[in-house]
């Protein structure tokens, strides 16, 4: 994996979308299996399949005076975000969009979660959904800056914002080894934009499902699939940023990218039932007083090593 990846024609976009879709299905099945185990049942791997069938047939619930346009935009937006993120993730020797500022591109896209999740909560004209939307933004105020500075570390180390060059800069040593703080904060950010696990109070049971309270049928399916897709896209983007890109023995580079993304995705899915929910009001101080200084120190360390070495 010495050379930087080459851009392939846009005709390959459906393949990239298909790979993302496969990861989404795998993540949903794994979550179903884990849910079954947590409930003491033998396995509930089939549950996501049944849920998809149910939602596809379900009639749309309507609410009084909903802002339907913004509601639908928000609900479908998460999936679009995930698809746009994977365009800059190189799969071994190939990439769809060889953007010179790929890292900033992903950063700009993860900010869109602020818009889409809040709009989904706002559009329904439902108190609980709106509370969920505000909970997400409160989390956002705490996770967004640490996430931005976590993305800075690999870019500084590689002296490039091109995702392919960041991956190629990890020939000898994966970035996760010498910038573990940035990696952990990045993973936290991915979990946050997917409204997953510790960041699920925005969808909490105490507010009747929060942002998803009034979502039904296809809209609900799109929103839930969007959350899995963001987890998958975030895991895929971590591979060139922190996990050495396609580097690895025996297997070809593209296979290594998929293997690493799948393993990280499985870890993130598993995390859901292992980490307690982070209350938005409590997490605010954690974000600003712990995560942000920690990740800034990480950036400083990386910058010093790059200049000195």
């Amino acid at each position: 994996m010495a050379e930087t990846p080459v851009a392939v024609s846009g005709g390959w976009a459906p393949v990239a979308a298909g790979l993302l879709g496969t990861l989404v299905v795998a993540a949903a099945l794994l979550d179903g299996a884990l849910a079954g185990r947590a409930a003491g049942a033998r396995s509930r791997m089939g549950r996501p399949v049944g849920e998809v069938a149910r939602l596809l047939r379900q009639r749309r619930r309507t609410t009084v005076a909903a802002d339907r346009l913004l509601w639908r935009v928000g609900g479908a937006g998460l999936l679009g975000m995930a698809l746009m993120i994977v365009t800059v993730v190189p799969l071994g020797r190939w990439t769809l969009f060889d953007l010179a500022v790929g890292v900033v591109w992903v950063n700009a896209l993860d900010v869109l979660a602020w818009a889409f999740v809040w709009l989904t909560g706002w559009g329904a004209n439902s108190a609980y959904a709106m509370i969920g939307g505000y909970r997400f933004l409160a989390h956002g105020l705490a996770y967004e800056l640490p996430l931005m500075f976590a993305l800075v570390a690999p870019a500084v180390a590689a002296s490039s914002l091109r995702v392919g060059e960041v991956a190629a800069a990890q020939q000898g040593l994966w970035f996760v080894v010498w910038m573990p703080v940035a990696f952990v904060v990045y993973c936290l950010g991915v979990v946050a934009i997917a409204v997953w696990g510790p960041f699920s109070p925005a969808l909490g049971r105490d507010v009747a499902g929060g942002v998803t309270a009034e979502l039904s049928g296809v809209d609900r399916l799109l929103f839930l699939a969007g959350r899995y897709a963001l987890l998958a896209a975030g895991a895929a983007f971590a591979v060139p940023m922190f996990l050495g890109g396609g580097g690895g023995p025996l297997l070809p580079a593209w296979a290594w990218v998929l293997v690493k993304a799948t393993v990280l995705l499985a870890g993130l899915v598993w995390l859901r039932r292992r980490v307690p929910a982070l209350r938005p009001d409590m997490f605010m101080e954690v974000g600003w007083l712990v995560l942000l200084p920690a990740v800034l120190l990480q950036d400083l360390l990386v910058a010093v090593i790059v200049i000195g070495g």
Binding site: L99, A100, V101, V104, W105, N107, A108, V111, L112, W114, A115, W118, L137, E144, L161
Partner: peptide, 17 residues
């Protein structure tokens, strides 16, 4: 490229707030 992506990043965040 950098300026363009940054305009989108900053403005979406600002409008959300």
């Amino acid at each position: 490229l950098y300026v363009g992506v940054l305009v989108i990043l900053m403005m979406v965040m600002e409008m959300a707030i």
